[in-house]
Amino acid sequence: MVKKAGGAPGLGPLSRLRRVEGVAWRVIGEEAVLVNVRSDEVMHLNSAASFLWSSLDGRASLEEIALSMTGQYDVDADTALSDSVAFASELVEQGAAEVVEPG
């Protein structure tokens, strides 16, 4: 079951998200450009945001993604996790990602 984008869910370390199908995207260098054809918006993501976005496959939890982020970036696990949860909430609010409910 998928919680549709548009709300502001209480995301946590175990939350799993996936990219919404209506969003076209491309990684350019280390950054990403997203085009949401439903909301007529173009989004530019910096390097860490692009890493997180690319990892939203609906299977990995935010905690797992944050942990892999610590291997790529000079950041500690706690900071990576809190930043990842905050940014994931932004993506859901923008309608670019949706929460995959367990079960």
Partner: peptide, 20 residues
């Protein structure tokens, strides 16, 4: 310095532009 080959970290951020 134990950062090894890891990249400099910047908090994940996005900028949003509305399509005309």
């Amino acid at each position: 310095d134990d950062s090894g080959d890891r990249k400099a970290y910047e908090k994940p951020q996005m900028s949003v532009m509305r399509i005309n």
